[in-house]
Amino acid sequence: MLSSWRAQLLITRIALYIASALIVVWSVAPFLWQVSTSFQEDRLLSSPTPSFLPWPGTLDHFYNIFVEKQFHLYIINSAIVAGLTTLFCLAIGGGAAFALARLRVYYHFGILALILSVSMFPQIAIVAPLYLAASSLGLMNTYTILVIIYLSLGLPLVIWVLFGYFQTIPREIDEAAIIDGAGPLRLLVSVILPMSLPGFVTTGLLAFIMAWNEFMFALAFTSGVERQTIPVGIANFTNLYYVPWGDLAAASVVVTLPLVLLVLAFQRWIIQGLTQGAVKE
């Protein structure tokens, strides 16, 4: 008897490990293959039997994208657009969520529902009208138009997540601050914001990733390396006659790295942010 439940326990545990390993492989394998591809010579990439290991390795693709294709310019554009988007998303979204969660705003659930419904429009449906609006305002091929669009895409998520986050902060904290002499702005900046740092970090990262990876609007509203963002830049690598797989892979690896680093750096806050409010503390 004793050994049978021990065996069962062992089997359960092994099954758990196998399942976890499968999930990891499933999600990481494409990325790893991309990394491997970025280091392989073109000769190997086009050979009939693909090779998983980059051997002999080469840095040609990285040289290509940075020296010949000026990939760093796209990175700068993306960094500016995604950075500004994140900043404005947090500032505006934080303020809006605070007002909805904490101040006397009538119909605040109606407003929240409205905000959510705005994000339900299929993006392809709003490209054309936005294009006309942007061109008549003279905003074509500017950082401004991209930031404005990404802001409107990112804000619903930011407002909803931060709203939920603020709701979990006890009201007495607000009241203590009010009695201590804090106005709404001071309350937000000195008390609510530091207490919701995980929420801000999580939503900020999501907004950043969204703006960093967005392709369709960037393609429609920018032309030329001086304003185009990374996804558009990568798409530019391909021409009518030739798909440079190695360069594409190298570029993908380069642009994924900052995201991975950001997530790792803020890991502690993200996990807190995503699970916060799930259980009573």
């Binding site: 007495e172 203590a176 601050a177 009695i179 207490m195």
Partner: peptide
């Protein structure tokens, strides 16, 4: 010119 003490303390955790 009043001060208040709350049941759940309401201290600023940060």
């Amino acid at each position: 010119d009043i001060a208040m003490v709350f049941q759940n303390y309401a201290l600023y955790p940060h």
